[in-house]
Design a protein around this nucleic acid. Structure first.
Lengths: 185, 185, 185, 185
DNA sequence: GATGAATGAGAATTCATTCAT
DNA sequence: GATGAATGAATTCTCATTCAT
């Protein structure tokens, strides 16, 4: 495992423990067991680090969600699959989720990276569009539709992570049902 | 208008203009026309300022949403009202919204303030519970239900604010319809 | 009891509790229950306060030591009296003592006040000079002689106050004996 | 010579030149030719610096006094030696002396450092105890005895440094004689 | 006489970044 | 490739003092 990974891991760990605001480079150096100059060997500056981390974490989430995706499943099953896997990731990786949500708006994240097309999301949006073509899902901007169902599932997890309520699998299933019922014709 | 207000206003203005990351105290002092020590006369430190601002902004949103609330309206109308007003606030106050979402997770915000009960949200949750009692809305944890519909509407706005798509009133109405259809029996 | 006294008392109290270095005016204002401007009504600035305190405390010590002075006593008895009373004051007013010792060297104390003649000390030095005239005490600069015996007694108390050793009356008597034996012919 | 030494030296120089009260960090940085952050690389904060300086200065005095100590000398000669060297140090290093006396009582100096055993003082106290064993010096707590003679010599120097009187070698010899006569049997 | 909000100069401290090794 | 001592500009925060009431 290289120093570069150490730095990225240490940064996410620290975000987890102390919150985004209070992170300093020297904390990262100490945590990653890395000299300060070593950092600059791998990352030109803070911005580059954060962008890299954002890319990494995005990819991690994307790959987690798409894993075990059954291309032969029905449209409804695929829809359920995406939301369920998203919920699973959010619950098991709360800090990654939180980092992604916060930094997506940050001036640090370059336009290019923020707008990069995520293949998993693309596939999900394709599924929605396909559903619309088949007359199963309501006609609307499929990206808006994606935001509707994505927002629902993520906010339900958020509420749970903020200790507003316990969350069992049945609530998650319920949420997915609500989403499906809402958007279907 | 006292210096304390000046400081709070200047801070929010600066967040609006420059984003959260780049704000420094000296910028606040200059903007508020206030000596540095004056700041510390009113706020013990940065944390206190941010908490105060969070309380203020929460209240602002809460009051914006509840304004013109018609207690005599039907349950469906009330539901639509809350989501529409939330969307209106989000669109017209993007920086306030972003500040609230980001800082809600920050270690700066005290547990006490984070968990404070918002009367507008309470009323919305009550409406949901009332709908359930009347057999109009599906039986589920009303707070979870609130997160579902709130997440939908806010994510739709977010997507718009991130330039993913233009947003006309008809998309907002559509979103509200999806929410209602999803949760009703 | 006037505000002026309150300020002086509060200042000495704070020196006692927190040490000289860490005293600030706002602490004094709070402790004395006095507005900041009230302070400046009585004392032009910090220097004046410290000088006033120095004068006050000097006088307090001086009056404590001279109290019950028996002008009819023998020279030896008078000598013992001064040293014993000095020791008594030092033990019972450690903070006053410490303030006097530290600030005597401070640039804050004006030359005028630092060099002001203390009547009690004058009387003690007179006693020494008288002893020399009578051929009882060794011939030397009486002020130097005063420093010798004063230094002895105060350092013995200091050592005690610094917890180097317990101190009973017999050690004090012993110290006085040493002083007397040292300077007598 | 490292930066750490530079900082300590600059601090002592400044105390010597300007007195304790007026020292600021930026003066130290300039004098030591050191960036501000460099200071914090070596010393966690002001307190640590002052403690370190206290240790250094203590050691300096200790080494000055013990220098040229003749272990073969008679007890009386040793006694004279310690007092004479103490006086020499006090006269030639008034600021160091004053720093030691003032800061010994300061809350800045940690208990541990304040109570550290000085080998030169230990040796002096041993000499006193040895004199008592030989029946030359009066029986009393040797530490008290040390304070008696130390206080005498230091107060005599103090009086001189405060411009109360000129001081030639003969007054110092006289003072040492008084001390010896006072404590011997 | 008494007040305390307001101040700005300046203090201590932190930070991202560089450079010689 | 790896290091960490060194940096100075920037930042947070303090302080003695003033002024309008």
């Amino acid at each position: 495992m290289g120093k570069r990974e150490d730095i990225l891991n240490a940064t996410l760990d620290l975000i987890t423990e102390e919150g985004l605001q209070s992170i300093t480079f020297s904390k990262i150096f100490k945590r990653a067991n890395v000299g300060s100059a070593t950092f600059y060997h791998y990352f030109d500056n803070k911005e580059v680090l954060v962008n890299e981390l954002y890319k990494n974490t995005s990819k991690q989430m994307s790959e987690f969600v798409i894993k075990d995706y059954d291309i032969a499943a029905t449209l409804y099953e695929k829809f359920r699959f995406f939301l369920k896997k998203t919920a699973d990731f959010a619950i098991s990786h709360p800090n990654e989720l939180w980092f992604l949500e916060n930094y997506a708006h940050s001036p640090f994240i370059s336009e290019e990276i923020r707008n990069a097309v995520d293949p998993t999301i693309s596939e999900f949006i394709n599924i929605i569009a396909e559903g619309q073509r088949q007359g199963i899902i309501k006609d609307m901007n499929p990206v808006v539709c994606f935001q509707i169902v994505g927002g629902s599932i993520l906010f339900v997890i958020r509420g749970h992570l903020s200790n507003k309520y316990p969350l069992s699998d049945s609530e998650i299933q319920q949420t997915i049902e609500v989403c499906w019922k809402g958007i279907k014709v």
